[in-house]
């Protein structure tokens, strides 16, 4: 049975089945957008935490670190309540839409990128603070330089955020509703098809998901190397 399902899955993948392609494409769009928006929020936030002397700095670090363990279903529940018709953001009409799924994933991805970026930037700051001070760089110049110096690591963090988003199932299931052709992404489709006993489609999507995650990691590895070689 497993072998049959596996062969059918390979057939679905190799035939570029339109239903599969549509699910994969939506997954890439939702998770890509979430990772990018998350990075746009997380990087300035991490930079602020590194540079600030505000009393809010320590609580923010604790909050970011604690947010790393946010359970996706809880995020899904909260976002669901926010976006539901009677919720404070109900007027946006984002519930059961890709926009709502992106919103939920941004909440999940942002703390990961921010917490890791803070660590990367702080380590770099430790390394360069004497140089920056001896060159009399302003705080803004120091920050710009820090972001540039850590660009390879930050790129990897962005990909890590994307990896987290595309592999997530709980929040997008609750907020997106897993509506076929509209909000069904790879993870939610895998969960649904498995529960229905439709192992071929679940396996096909699983293969693609694993393939994407592996490609992301290979891309991150070689992106680092190529960018580094440019300066070697």
């Amino acid at each position: 049975m497993i072998a049959d399902a596996f062969l059918q899955a390979l057939a679905l993948v190799s035939s570029f089945d339109p239903a599969v392609i549509s699910i994969v494409w939506l997954s890439l769009k939702v998770s890509g957008a979430a990772a990018l928006i998350g990075a746009l929020i997380a990087l300035p936030l991490a930079a602020w935490v590194v540079q600030t002397r505000s009393l809010l700095r320590e609580p923010m670090i604790v909050l970011l670190n604690a947010s790393l363990g946010l359970p996706p279903v809880i995020v899904g529940l909260v976002v669901y309540l926010l976006l539901s018709r009677t919720g404070p953001m109900g007027a946006l009409g984002w519930l059961f839409t890709p926009a709502g799924m992106i919103f939920a994933q941004v909440i999940l991805v942002t703390p990961i990128i921010a917490a890791l970026a803070r660590q990367v930037l702080e380590d770099a700051q430790q390394e360069y603070q004497d140089l920056f001070a001896s060159l009399a760089l302003s705080r803004w110049q120091s920050l710009q330089t820090l972001l540039f110096e850590t660009r390879f690591s930050l790129l990897v963090l962005l990909l890590a955020g994307f990896g987290r988003a595309i592999a997530e199932v709980g929040a997008v299931m609750m907020v997106g509703g897993n509506i076929a052709g509209h909000t069904r992404v790879m993870t939610t489709a895998i969960a649904l098809e498995t529960s229905k006993g439709e192992l071929a489609l679940a396996l096909a999507l699983g293969l693609i998901l694993v393939f994407i995650v592996v490609v992301i990691n290979i891309a991150a590895h070689y992106a680092r190397q190529v960018l580094r070689r440019r300066y070697a």
Binding site: E127, Y128, D130, L131, S134, T145, E149, F152, Y231
Partner: peptide, 18 residues
């Protein structure tokens, strides 16, 4: 106009010229 050299020079992740 001051400059300082350190025992372990903090070098930027760039090429020599940069």
């Amino acid at each position: 106009q001051q400059a300082m050299l350190f025992q372990k020079p903090p070098l930027l992740r760039r090429n020599v010229l940069d």
